[in-house]
Amino acid sequence: DDWEIHFNNITIRLHGVSEEQIEELKELIKNGAHEEELRKWAEEVNR
């Protein structure tokens, strides 16, 4: 699925990401992940 997530003036566009991966991302954000951590997560997902 395609997703677009907005938070802290950042837009993250995701393509072909599962519901499970979105839940992981929500947890990262909820736990106060920094932009660098989110980038690493996105790189892993996009492999």
Rank of each mutant, 00 (worst) to 15 (best):
W3C: 14
L28F: 02
L25M: 06
E4P: 02
N8K: 11
T11H: 05
K30E: 07
I10N: 03
D1R: 15
G32N: 02
N46C: 15
E23M: 12
A33T: 05
R47P: 14
K26D: 03
E44K: 07
E37S: 10
N9Y: 09
N46M: 15
K26P: 00
V17D: 00
S18T: 13
E43V: 03
D1A: 15
N9P: 02
E37D: 13
E44G: 05
N46V: 12
W41S: 00
G32C: 11
W3D: 03
L25T: 00
Q21C: 04
I22H: 03
R13A: 11
E37Q: 10
K30C: 15
F7E: 01
E35C: 14
R47H: 15
R39G: 02
V17H: 02
E4W: 11
V45Y: 10
E36R: 06
G16I: 07
G16Q: 12
E35V: 12
I5K: 04
L38C: 01
L28W: 02
G32Y: 02
N9G: 15
R47K: 15
I22E: 01
I12R: 02
I12F: 05
R39Y: 08
E44T: 05
G16T: 11
A33R: 01
W41R: 01
E19M: 11
I22W: 07
E43L: 04
N31F: 04
R13G: 10
A42W: 15
R39W: 10
Q21L: 12
E27F: 13
I22S: 02
N46H: 10
L38Q: 00
N8H: 10
R47S: 15
E19L: 14
I5T: 04
I10H: 08
G16Y: 12
K40N: 07
E35P: 10
I5Q: 05
I10S: 09
Q21V: 11
L28A: 01
W41I: 01
L14H: 03
E43K: 04
Q21H: 09
K40C: 05
H15N: 09
N31E: 05
R39I: 15
L28Q: 01
I12L: 08
L25H: 00
I12S: 03
A42P: 00
E23G: 09
E23K: 12
I5W: 11
T11I: 15
S18M: 04
T11Y: 08
A42Y: 14
L14Q: 01
E23V: 09
I22P: 00
E44P: 00
K30R: 13
E37I: 04
H15S: 11
G16W: 09
H34T: 15
K40A: 12
I12G: 03
I10T: 08
V17E: 01
T11V: 12
H15Y: 14
L25N: 00
N31W: 07
E20P: 03
E23P: 01
I29S: 01
H34M: 10
V45T: 08
N46R: 07
S18R: 10
G32Q: 05
A42V: 14
Q21S: 06
E19Q: 13
E20I: 09
T11A: 06
G32E: 02
D1K: 15
L25K: 00
I22D: 00
N8S: 10
F7T: 06
D2N: 11
K26A: 07
L38V: 13
H34A: 13
V17I: 12
E43T: 05
R47L: 15
L38K: 00
D2Y: 15
V45S: 03
W3R: 04
L14C: 10
K26C: 15
K30L: 09
R47D: 12
S18A: 06
D1F: 15
V45D: 02
L14V: 11
D2I: 15
E35L: 11
H15V: 10
K40M: 09
L25C: 02
E27H: 08
I12P: 02
I29M: 08
A33Y: 05
V17W: 08
S18E: 02
A33M: 10
R47T: 15
G16P: 03
E20M: 12
E23H: 11
E35W: 10
W3Q: 04
G32S: 02
A33S: 07
I29T: 01
G16F: 12
A33W: 03
E20V: 08
E24T: 06
E20H: 09
D1Y: 15
E36L: 07
N46I: 14
R13C: 13
H6M: 12
K26L: 14
N9S: 11
Q21T: 08
E37T: 08
V17Y: 04
E23A: 13
A33P: 01
R39S: 05
G16H: 14
G16R: 08
A33I: 09
T11D: 06
G32M: 02
E24G: 05
V45M: 06
I10F: 06
L25P: 00
T11P: 04
E4K: 07
E24H: 11
L14M: 06
I22C: 08
E27S: 11
I29Y: 03
L28C: 01
R13W: 13
H34I: 10
L14S: 02
K30H: 06
W41V: 01
H15F: 13
E35Q: 04
E35D: 06
R47F: 15
E24L: 08
I22L: 13
E27Q: 12
H6D: 06
E4I: 14
E35N: 04
E43Q: 06
R39H: 07
N8C: 10
D2Q: 12
V45N: 05
E36Y: 08
L25G: 02
I5S: 08
D2G: 11
E43R: 02
H6T: 14
L25I: 06
E4T: 13
E37V: 06
V17N: 01
L25Q: 00
H34G: 15
E27Y: 10
I12Y: 04
V17K: 01
T11N: 07
A33N: 02
N31Y: 06
R13F: 12
N31T: 06
A33C: 11
I29H: 01
E43M: 03
I12D: 04
E19V: 12
L25S: 00
V17S: 01
I10E: 07
E37R: 03
R47G: 15
E19Y: 13
I22Q: 03
L28V: 02
S18L: 05
R39K: 13
A33F: 04
I10M: 10
L28H: 01
K30Q: 11
R13I: 14
H6P: 05
F7H: 05
R47Q: 15
I10Y: 04
N9D: 11
N8L: 08
K26R: 11
D1I: 15
L38D: 00
E44C: 01
E20T: 10
E23L: 12
N8G: 14
F7K: 01
R47Y: 14
W41E: 00
K30S: 07
H15M: 05
I12Q: 06
I10Q: 07
I12E: 03
E27A: 12
K40G: 05
W3H: 05
H6F: 11
H15P: 07
E35H: 07
I12V: 05
L14P: 03
D1W: 14
E20C: 05
I5Y: 11
E19I: 13
Q21F: 05
D1G: 14
N8E: 11
A42G: 02
E36T: 09
E44Y: 06
I10P: 01
V45I: 13
V17C: 02
E4N: 07
I10V: 09
L25R: 00
N8Y: 04
E36Q: 07
N9K: 07
F7L: 09
V45C: 03
H15D: 08
A42K: 04
A33L: 05
K26T: 05
G32T: 01
R13N: 13
E44L: 03
S18Q: 04
I5H: 08
H6A: 08
I5C: 13
E19D: 10
E35Y: 11
N46W: 13
W41F: 05
E4D: 08
T11C: 05
K30Y: 05
L14G: 02
A42H: 06
N8I: 13
S18I: 02
R39L: 15
H15A: 06
Q21G: 02
I12N: 03
K26Q: 06
T11R: 02
N31H: 08
V45Q: 11
V17L: 13
E24W: 06
V45K: 04
R13M: 13
A42D: 02
L38F: 06
E35G: 05
Q21P: 00
L38E: 00
S18D: 05
W3K: 05
N46P: 03
A33H: 03
K40F: 06
I29P: 00
N31S: 12
I22Y: 06
T11M: 09
W41P: 00
E27I: 12
E4V: 12
G16M: 08
D2W: 15
K40S: 08
R13Y: 10
V45H: 10
H6W: 07
L28I: 07
N9T: 09
E27R: 13
A42N: 02
E35T: 04
F7A: 04
H15Q: 11
R13E: 09
I12K: 03
W41Q: 00
K26H: 09
R39V: 14
Q21K: 12
I29E: 00
E23C: 10
K30P: 00
N8M: 13
E19H: 12
V45L: 12
D1H: 15
I29R: 01
E43S: 03
E43P: 00
E44Q: 08
N31G: 07
I29K: 01
H34N: 15
H6I: 12
E23I: 09
E44N: 09
N46Q: 15
E20G: 11
I10A: 05
L38A: 01
E27C: 13
L28R: 02
E23F: 12
N9F: 08
K40I: 08
D1P: 08
L25A: 02
I5G: 02
N46E: 14
W3M: 11
N46K: 09
E23S: 09
R39T: 08
W3F: 10
E36S: 11
H34P: 13
N31D: 05
E37K: 04
I5L: 10
E27W: 14
I10C: 12
E24R: 10
D2S: 12
L25W: 04
Q21A: 10
D1Q: 14
E23R: 13
